[in-house]
C-alpha cells in the first residue's frame, strides 16, 4: 500500500490488517506516555483546502503520537488564496521533503490527481475529497463497529475478525456524503450488510449500482431489520444550494426532515438492545439526531473520535514505516515488465 485514496482500493485482507494495527495503536494510547518513536524524522503535511477541525487535528495527533513532524497547510490565508494551483502547491511540498500528504479538497478526485501526477514522491492520504471518499472515516467507523459488535479477537499472530453478518443502516444526506460512499464500499468488503435510508431527493443517481439496499422509510427499516449499528449522516447544508428554509431544494423544511429521518427517542426504542448509534460529526443536534439519541449510552460518537486517532496512526504506520523505496522499485519493475 502506497497511498490511501479510496475504500474501493482496499481488499478484505488489507482492511482487516489496518483494523488490527489500529487495535494495537489504540492499546498504546491508554498508556501514560502515548508517544512512540516509530516515524521519527518523517514529515507529514496536512494539506487542507476545505475547512475541517476534527479530521485535521485527528491526523495531526496521530502523526505526532508517532513522532512524525507535522506541517499544517490550510488554504485560507495561504498561497492558495492567492491563486496557486494544486500542482504548484504540490511541487512546493515536494521541495520541502514531505513523506506523506494528507489532503482534503472540495473537488472529488483531487487526491487521486495528486497521487497519480508524479508531482510528489510522498504517500497521499485522502482526508475527504468533495462528495467522493473519506476512507479513514470509514475505517474508524468499521473499527468502532468491530470493537462493539464483533470483538477484536486479536491474539498472538492472529488476524482479527471482519464484520460479516452485521447489519448497518446509514441514514440521511447520502447524496452529499463521502462518508456514506466510503462506508458502503468498506462495510461490504468486510462482509456487513448495508441499507441506506434517505429522502428520495438525497439519494444519488446511480445508487442501484452500489452494493447496498436503499429505502425511503426509516421506521420500517429500523423495526424489521433490527440493525446492529445506525449511522446518522450530517445534513450538509453548506453543499445544498437553492431556495427553501435551510434545506435548499432537497427537503421542504428542517422540521419535516427531522420527522422523517431524524433519530429521536421513539426511534431509538425500536433498535435492539445491543445496537450502537454513530455519527461522523459535527452533529446538527435537533436536525438529524436528537439530544436524547446523541447523549444516550448507545451513542459511540465520542469514541469514534478517539478511534479516529488510532486508525490514522495505523494508516500512517502502514504507509510510512516500511521501506517505501523497496515497494517503489517493485512497482517500477512491474511497469517495465
Amino acid at each position: 500500500m502506497r497511498h490511501l485514496l479510496s475504500t474501493a482500493d482496499l481488499d478484505v485482507t488489507t482492511a482487516v490488517r489496518i483494523l488490527d494495527t489500529a487495535a494495537q495503536m489504540a492499546a498504546t494510547q491508554s498508556r501514560e506516555i502515548k508517544k512512540l518513536p516509530t516515524l521519527r524524522g518523517r514529515t507529514v503535511v496536512n494539506l487542507f483546502f476545505e475547512d475541517s477541525t476534527r479530521t485535521r487535528i485527528s491526523f495531526e495527533t496521530a502523526a505526532k503520537r508517532l513522532s512524525a513532524d507535522v506541517i499544517n497547510f490550510s488554504a485560507k490565508g495561504s498561497s492558495v488564496s492567492k491563486g496557486e494551483s494544486l500542482k504548484d502547491t504540490a511541487l512546493t511540498l515536494q521541495a520541502m521533503g514531505a513523506d506523506a500528504v494528507v489532503i482534503r479538497h472540495q473537488a472529488s478526485g483531487a487526491p487521486h490527481t495528486l497521487a497519480a501526477s508524479g508531482w510528489v514522491d510522498s504517500s497521499v492520504i485522502n482526508a475527504g475529497d468533495g462528495t467522493h471518499q473519506h476512507p479513514t472515516q470509514a475505517l474508524l467507523d468499521a473499527y468502532t463497529m468491530r470493537r462493539h459488535l464483533a470483538g477484536d479477537a486479536v491474539g498472538v499472530g492472529d488476524v482479527g475478525r471482519d464484520l460479516s453478518g452485521l447489519r448497518v443502516v446509514i441514514v440521511g444526506d447520502v447524496l452529499h456524503s463521502r462518508v456514506a460512499r466510503s462506508n458502503v464500499l468498506l462495510l461490504r468488503t468486510l462482509g456487513a450488510d448495508v441499507t441506506l435510508v434517505a429522502p428520495p431527493t438525497l439519494v444519488p443517481v446511480g445508487v442501484e449500482a452500489w452494493p447496498c439496499r436503499v429505502s425511503y422509510d426509516l421506521d420500517p427499516v429500523l423495526r424489521d431489520q433490527q440493525p446492529d449499528a445506525v449511522m446518522m449522516l450530517r445534513v450538509q447544508r453548506e453543499r445544498m444550494t437553492g431556495g427553501g428554509s435551510g434545506g435548499g431544494a432537497f427537503f421542504p423544511n428542517p422540521v419535516e426532515y427531522t420527522r422523517g429521518y431524524g433519530l429521536d427517542r421513539r426511534r431509538l426504542a425500536l433498535l435492539p438492545d445491543h445496537a450502537i448509534v454513530m455519527h461522523p460529526g459535527p452533529m446538527n443536534r435537533g436536525l438529524e439526531i436528537s439530544a436524547d439519541a446523541a447523549d444516550s449510552p448507545r451513542a459511540v460518537i465520542v469514541e469514534q473520535v478517539t478511534n479516529g486517532v488510532a486508525v490514522r496512526m495505523a494508516v500512517l504506520y502502514l504507509l510510512l514505516a516500511g521501506d517505501l523505496a523497496e515497494q517503489k522499485n517493485v512497482e517500477e519493475r512491474v511497469v517495465v515488465a
Binding site: A27, A321, D323
Partner: peptide, 23 residues
C-alpha cells in the same frame, strides 16, 4: 506478559511495514 518492540525498531525503514504484535 508480552512486550512488542516493533514500533521501537531501528530497521523499520529497511523492510516493508511489519505487523504490530500485542503488548
Amino acid at each position: 506478559g508480552a512486550l512488542d518492540v516493533t514500533m521501537y525498531r531501528d530497521d523499520l525503514r529497511r523492510h516493508p511495514a511489519r505487523p504490530i504484535g500485542q503488548t
